[in-house]
Design a protein around this nucleic acid. Sequence first.
DNA 1: AATACAGTTAACCGCACGGCTAACAGTTTT
DNA 2: AAAACTGTTAGCCGTGCGGTTAACTGTATT
Lengths: 117, 117
Amino acid sequence: MVSLDRRFHALADPTRRAVLERLGPGEATVGELAQPFPLSLPAFLKHLRVLEEAGLIETEKRGRTRICRLRNGAYAPLAAWLDDQRRLWEERTDRLAELAIAMEESADAKHDQDRRE
Amino acid sequence: MVSLDRRFHALADPTRRAVLERLGPGEATVGELAQPFPLSLPAFLKHLRVLEEAGLIETEKRGRTRICRLRNGAYAPLAAWLDDQRRLWEERTDRLAELAIAMEESADAKHDQDRRE
DNA sequence: AATACAGTTAACCGCACGGCTAACAGTTTT
DNA sequence: AAAACTGTTAGCCGTGCGGTTAACTGTATT
């Protein structure tokens, strides 16, 4: 299994994210992918390698060209981690809300008590 | 607005992700956060800086200690990007499915035609 | 067979990243 | 006032990342 480190690192670059965005709707060759970027081909190839080793894309050589496509379930582990964190956060705010309510009730009780005195 | 580059880069490190996980349930001081890690304090502080400049946490100095907490909506832009990409992917597979159905119908038609001949 | 095309490998380069130690600064505590 | 505690800054260092050019491989085209 590829580490979250590799996956997140792969996304921390605008060129690589652009490639993924381009690959969302459908597959493309190395040349087609590289065309929009002001990069040498070797530099661009390194980005593709990073994406492939992060398990985000898969590639296949057909003749003298190589076609690239998004991997099935590529984003699942990343989305899962984010969802976990958001869940933790919301559980926390829920607890805070309960606490606030409890304090309010306690304050009301004190208020009633004051009135009775 | 903080770039996606910074945000994703901040997540591409196990120490920093661990800090975020720790901070999910509630806030903590620098010392409490640093304690589990086999790092010098200056090294650890750099990680906190990265997280703060990525807009993921916010910190506040109280006396001689500094307390750190998760920022509200910290993960929203990241989750949004991921969701966009997954949407693109699913639209693509939907189109492929439609195409497959269309081809099947076409094949059926051809088949019927063959039978009629 | 020669040429062009698409990608790949190798070797290098500057710089930012992640780590360290040492010294300093501002708050509590005693 | 002195000592202890909690961060913080400064400066250094090795490694890896993102980029380059040059040379090469293998596949189509003519």
